[in-house]
Structures are given as structure tokens and as C-alpha cells.
């Protein structure tokens, strides 16, 4: 099988038309979003494709780092938009995502699982950053909601002389778990319910299934690490906004 060209991509628009027709028939008001999303996906992905070709050809470590920085900043901005009721959420999401992503990528490079080449680092970083983005947004927004909704419970513990960490232990755990949940669910069903993207891509590109599987296992572990670090960082950064050094739950964060 050859890889599809622009003609094949154009033909595949039939699938978008099918989706739009179904949505319209069922009066689901998403036709506009579907059309816009399809165009947007095309433009973004083609632009990324050209950018990656340039980056791969130039082989510059600085370009790799610049690409990572852009990916993290854009991802963190999107994640921050999902975190309500906290001032400057971007600081939380960008820090958590940077630590979670860079630690994981660094471990992969230092242990020589991958080499520091754009061809490996950028696609894997894309997966890591995408998952970290969701983890940071879910963790920070869940924690914020829980702390605001459970003021009486938390202050009841504080008033008994408990420290802020003890008083908010339940909410710390719940929010970190929320951030990791989709990853944990993915790990439970991977290979059974669905074949993950990286593995599917490799098989379609002609790799041996076992090679693709081994690579996918590494990807799963990598994502688990990134999501866990990001969630924990997001908790630590968010919760410090809520409590003072004197173990007081702030009214305005």
C-alpha cells in the first residue's frame, strides 16, 4: 500500500460529507464545527508536515527545543483555558507540563531508548504534551472545584489544628487521580479494545507487528510517567494558591 497523496486526502473528504449529512439529518447542530474542524485539521497538519520536514532536514538541537517550547506553550494555554476560578492558571499548566514532559523525554534520551533527533523527539513529545495538557487541566480544575465546594470540611479540619495538607488530603488524591484516570483506563484496555495510534501508524508504515508492539509499550510507560508527574505538579502548584503559610484557606485565589 502506498501512502495517500493530496488526491487521496481530497477523496477522503467524502467521509466528512457523510458525517455532516448524518449530523444534519439528526439535527445535531455541529455541521459548522465539523466543516471548520476538517479544514482546520487539514491546514494545521499540512503546516506541521512542512515544518517537520524543515526541522528533520536541518538536524538542529535548538530547533528541536524551540519546537518543544512552542508545543508546550500552546498546550499549556489551551489547558489554562479549561481551569476556572484561579488567577493566572497558565503559570500552573505551563510549569506542570514542562516538568512532566521534559523529565520524561530526558529519561528516554539518557537511557538511549530514543536518540536526540527531531524524527524521534518531536512526535513522541507531541504525544506526551497532548496527554500532559489534559492531565494538567483535569487535575487543576478538579482540585479548584473541590477546594471551593468543600470549604466547610477543610476549615473544620484546619480548626481542629490539622495542617493544610492533611485537611485537603482527600481532594489532593481525588484531583491527581482525575488527571491520571484516562491514562490508567488506556493502560487497562490497550491492545484489547483498541490498537493505539503509534502502533497502528508503525504497522501501516510497514513495521513488523512485534516491533510496533514493543514501541507502543514504551510509549505507554512514557505517557504514564509524563501524566503522573504533570498531575502531581499541577496539584502542588494549584493547592499552594489556596493556602497561606499559616494554614488558612484563602477566600480569593
Amino acid at each position: 500500500m502506498s501512502t495517500p497523496g493530496f488526491l487521496e486526502v481530497g477523496i477522503s473528504l467524502i467521509l466528512v460529507v457523510i458525517a455532516v449529512v448524518i449530523a444534519r439529518y439528526w439535527r445535531i447542530p455541529v455541521e459548522k464545527d465539523m466543516a471548520l474542524g476538517s479544514v482546520r485539521a487539514f491546514v494545521q497538519l499540512v503546516a506541521v508536515g512542512y515544518a517537520l520536514e524543515v526541522i528533520f532536514d536541518l538536524q538542529s538541537p535548538w530547533l528541536i527545543l524551540l519546537a518543544l517550547a512552542v508545543m508546550i506553550i500552546v498546550g499549556a494555554h489551551a489547558a489554562a483555558g479549561r481551569v476556572k476560578d484561579v488567577k493566572r492558571p497558565f503559570v500552573i499548566t505551563v510549569t506542570a507540563m514542562t516538568v512532566g514532559s521534559l523529565v520524561t523525554i530526558a529519561v528516554m534520551i539518557l537511557t538511549r531508548i530514543i536518540s536526540f533527533e527531531a524524527r524521534y523527539v518531536i512526535p513522541l513529545a507531541g504525544m506526551i504534551i497532548g496527554n500532559s495538557m489534559n492531565a494538567s487541566a483535569l487535575t487543576a480544575s478538579r482540585l479548584t472545584t473541590d477546594l471551593k465546594d468543600n470549604r466547610l470540611a477543610i476549615e473544620s479540619a484546619l480548626a481542629l489544628g490539622k495542617g493544610w495538607r492533611v485537611a485537603s488530603k482527600k481532594y489532593i488524591r481525588n484531583s491527581a487521580t482525575a488527571g491520571m484516570m484516562s491514562m490508567l483506563n488506556f493502560m487497562k484496555t490497550v491492545g484489547i479494545v483498541a490498537l493505539p495510534g503509534a502502533m497502528t501508524g508503525m504497522i501501516l508504515a510497514g513495521a513488523e507487528p512485534l516491533d510496533a508492539v514493543l514501541f507502543q509499550i514504551v510509549v505507554a510507560y512514557m505517557l504514564l510517567s509524563a501524566v503522573t508527574i504533570t498531575s502531581v505538579m499541577a496539584v502542588e502548584l494549584t493547592i499552594r494558591r489556596f493556602f497561606t503559610r499559616c494554614h488558612q484557606l484563602q477566600h480569593d485565589v
Binding site: L158, C246, H247
Partner: peptide, 13 residues
């Protein structure tokens, strides 16, 4: 220390 103080000055909501 705030935690110690709150044990000595209790609060009922």
C-alpha cells in the same frame, strides 16, 4: 504555630 494555637483555641462552626 497555627496548628498548635487552633487546638488551644477551638472553633465550632
Amino acid at each position: 504555630p497555627p496548628c498548635e494555637l487552633r487546638q488551644k483555641i477551638g472553633y465550632l462552626f
